[in-house]
């Protein structure tokens, strides 16, 4: 109980104090996870939309694979990206390992399947409704993809939030490919892991509360936006 109240006090202190180190960690967390969401969205949203409208051999297998990859353990994802980006790996010449770029890459790999699978689910129901009308307009499945993505923009916001939540909460991948370097690749989750290692459990918990507060804030903002938009678009 003592630890918990100490954690609450520490969390309030962290948020109020404006410690530049903590602010840097928060900023990097946001930058890494939001960048990962953007990159994963550039791949995952069109892929999900394609799977929603197109019928081709192997589609079922691809959907099953994506659904399975939604459960990809971050550590495995991190290891995979580590081996790719290591100087001894195929992409070693990029020099990305132990940089925020590597963390963005790992989180993007982690959440792209989530975005693709959820996008497919959302847009498949839209497509059922739209398909005949769009074909009447002369728009085939390919032309339907941007239409569905645009019309689904508010529902897809929730999908992006799911991706952001997963990215900002994971520790396994960024720990491995980022190295938790102080002032350079340390983010909220790896900082929490570090403070736990050092046995400073109240501080670790306080950082966790700060992380939750940030995720909550992002979600609340998106929810407000979505609420307004839903009232608008019906």
């Amino acid at each position: 109980m003592n630890d918990l109240s100490a954690a609450f006090a520490a969390a309030a202190g962290l948020l109020a104090g404006g410690d530049p180190a903590v602010l840097g960690i928060i900023g990097l967390s946001l930058r890494v996870s939001l960048s990962a969401v953007v990159i994963a969205a550039l791949v995952g949203l069109p892929l999900g939309a394609l799977l929603a409208v197109a019928r081709f051999p192997g589609r079922g297998a691809l959907i099953v694979t994506l659904n399975a990859l939604m459960g990809l353990p971050p550590v495995v994802c991190g290891l995979l990206v580590y081996l790719l980006l290591s100087r001894s790996g195929p992409l070693g010449s990029l020099g990305l390992l132990f940089t925020p770029g590597a963390m963005i890459a790992a989180q993007a790999v982690l959440i792209a399947p989530i975005l693709a699978a959820l996008t497919r689910q959302v847009l498949e129901s839209y497509w059922e409704e739209y398909a005949e009308q769009l074909r009447s307009f002369g728009a085939g499945p390919w032309r339907a993809i941007p239409t569905l993505l645009w019309d689904g923009r508010f529902a897809l916001l929730t999908v992006l939030l799911a991706g952001f939540g997963r990215a900002s909460a994971e520790v396994g991948a960024v720990m491995i490919v980022g190295g938790n370097i102080e002032g350079f690749t340390r983010v909220m989750t790896t900082a929490i892991a570090l403070e736990t290692s050092k046995g400073d459990l109240p501080l670790a918990l306080a950082l966790g509360m700060v992380l939750m507060a940030i995720v909550l804030g992002v979600n609340a903002a998106a929810q407000t936006l979505r609420g307004a938009a839903t009232r608008w678009a019906g």
Partner: peptide, 28 residues
């Protein structure tokens, strides 16, 4: 804006720096 943020990463990586692989004991 997001793309600019992403592209600025290599620039950050180019500052004069070295990477040390060390142990938890020295860090923690």
């Amino acid at each position: 804006a997001a793309l600019v943020a992403l592209l600025s990463l290599p620039a950050l990586a180019q500052e004069r720096s070295i990477t040390i692989a060390s142990t938890t004991s020295t860090e923690q």
